[in-house]
Design a binder for these strands. Structure first.
Lengths: 144, 144
DNA sequence: GCTGTTGCAACCTTCACTGTTACGACTGCA
DNA sequence: TGCAGTCGTAACAGTGAAGGTTGCAACAGC
């Protein structure tokens, strides 16, 4: 599976901003977050832009610009983040329409679709159980 | 997410072979399955090759060659298929190691890892509940 | 104005997967 | 023995998503 790291990086960024704000800072810059995540600031800005459209963070421009949380980490779940940064389904159908003249080709997509929907619903439920405050707590609990 | 269709195509192939055998045929060819799935026979052979290594199907060469099930569809679950054709995890970590000098960069991977493992376990459990016989039944139940 | 940062477009690179071609290996049958 | 049909597999092109990079306009406080 072409697993991508968007959810991981987004959670990283949110945890970083949250911790930084707990330390008394107003805003965090994409440069700082990119350094922590070992990637490029533009990558972080792109991701945070999606989180902003989802209402999870806010950005400020000009001097003293940067990013801040739009809500408390406690009220933000991994499902919110997942929906903000992962558009597609977990499993895909055929790239081309199967042979509709064949019984299997005709019935396979609705059959798999309903199975996949059930699984995605379960995954969403699991993601909704974890808040970003949980994530930050676990991050800080890691042995050094 | 880079959703791919390997699980879908593999289930399609197994259902096709299963139905074909129920109709009294010995073996199915990659050519027939590829026509039903509207793809290339080599793609099917590659996938079925992975299923063969997992002990789900058998292949015969020479004249009258083709593919047959190695077990009953009833004893084959989507988890068996998933494990045979999907090597990687559902969610990925950072592509490069985050800054270990940063508290978040250091703790984020173990934190996300444990969350992801729980979710993958749930997905596997869901996949294990569906047999290929269930899939074929649903396929045949599709309205035409 | 100057400065630091966001917002965003454009482009390249990488990677996994699919699609395609080609050909040797195998095996039953005439 | 040769033929025919199919697998097994390598090699390579095409595709699409994502990350990485550069560049620059827009913004806002000083």
């Amino acid at each position: 599976m072409s697993a991508n790291s968007r959810l991981t990086i987004a959670a990283h960024a949110l945890a970083w901003i949250g911790l930084y704000q707990r330390q008394g800072h107003e805003v965090a810059t994409s440069e700082q977050i990119a350094t922590s995540a070992n990637t490029n600031p533009v990558v972080i800005r792109r991701l945070l832009g999606e989180l902003r459209r989802a209402g999870l963070v806010e950005s400020r421009r000009g001097v003293g610009a940067g990013w801040s949380l739009a809500r408390e980490l406690e009220s933000m779940t991994l499902l919110d983040v997942y929906e903000a940064v992962e558009p597609g389904p977990l499993f895909a159908m055929h790239r081309t329409t199967p042979d509709q003249g064949c019984v299997v080709g005709h019935g396979i997509q609705p059959a798999m679709q309903s199975i996949y929907e059930g699984i995605e619903e379960t995954v969403r439920h699991e993601l909704a159980r974890v808040t970003l405050a949980n994530v930050l707590r676990d991050v800080l609990a890691a042995p050094r």
